[in-house]
Amino acid sequence: MMVLSQMDAGKSLTAAAARGNAGEVQRILEECRVHPDALNEFGRSALQVMMMGNPKIARLLLEKGADPNMQDKHGIAPAHDAARTGFLDTLQVLVEYGASVNIPDHSGALPIHIAIREVHRDVVEFLAPRSDLKHLNVSGQTAIDVARASRVPDLIDLLFAHIHS
């Protein structure tokens, strides 16, 4: 049984999560009894730095009680990162374990604002019924305003369908 200091534990856990090494994440969580929200030297948790395309790592961390809504100094939560990178499967796992899709980052953006800007249609489709579509970012834009500004007509239609449903 290896006991790591919290800092070493956080470093090892976040490094394994960032590399996308699920086996190592599981080993550190179980053998070293590390809290899933242990921070690395940059003050970030494993869920915040994990390889976004690996829903298995998200699930491992969340099953052990990682906070899905932990925000960094820019107000960015894991759901914002999943929306930005377009990994719907990871976003679905986050939401399943209680991630809110209505927490704004410091620019007032919800995950849906970011997914629209990056034109991740499947993510926008998943987020639309779950998001506060009236929410304004700091520029005073709703999700539809962002879609208009991005000139993506089918996303505008998709969002309108959810507003009027």
Rank of each mutant, 00 (worst) to 15 (best):
I103S: 01
L88C: 01
T85H: 09
G108E: 06
N69Y: 06
L88W: 08
S100H: 10
L110N: 05
P111L: 14
N102Q: 09
H106K: 14
Q92I: 04
Q71I: 09
I76Q: 12
M70Y: 06
Q71P: 03
L91I: 09
V101C: 09
A83R: 07
P104N: 06
N102M: 04
R84Y: 15
L91D: 14
A83Y: 10
A77I: 11
K73Y: 12
P78T: 01
S107W: 06
I76V: 15
H113Y: 05
K73G: 02
V93S: 08
G108M: 02
V93A: 08
H113L: 10
S107Y: 11
L91C: 12
D105P: 01
R84A: 14
I103G: 00
I76H: 00
L94T: 12
K73A: 06
H113Q: 03
A77C: 12
L94W: 09
N102A: 08
L110R: 10
V101R: 14
A82Q: 04
G98N: 13
Y97K: 11
D105Q: 04
A109S: 14
G86Y: 08
E96C: 01
D81Y: 00
P78G: 00
I76K: 01
N102T: 04
T85K: 11
D105R: 08
G75E: 05
V101G: 07
R84W: 14
A115R: 03
G86V: 09
E96Q: 15
L91R: 06
S100Y: 13
D89P: 12
G98P: 12
H106N: 15
A99I: 10
D81H: 00
H113E: 02
I103D: 02
H74T: 00
D89T: 11
P104D: 09
H80M: 01
L91N: 07
M70P: 00
G75I: 06
N69G: 07
A77E: 09
G98V: 07
T90A: 07
P111R: 12
L88N: 04
H113N: 09
P78N: 01
T90R: 13
H74S: 11
I76C: 03
H74F: 14
Q71Y: 00
H113P: 02
D81E: 09
G108V: 05
H106W: 07
G108H: 09
L88D: 11
H74M: 05
R84Q: 06
P78M: 02
A77W: 03
P104K: 08
D105W: 01
V95F: 11
Y97Q: 13
L91G: 13
T90M: 11
G98W: 13
L91T: 07
I114E: 07
A83G: 04
M70L: 13
Q71R: 11
H106V: 10
H106M: 14
V93P: 15
A109G: 02
R84P: 00
L91Q: 08
E96P: 02
D72M: 09
A79F: 04
G98L: 14
E96V: 04
S100A: 04
G108P: 06
L94R: 03
N69P: 03
G86C: 07
V93D: 12
H80E: 01
G98S: 00
N69S: 07
R84D: 07
D105M: 04
I114P: 11
N102C: 12
N69H: 03
A82G: 12
I112W: 10
P111M: 05
P104H: 04
A82P: 10
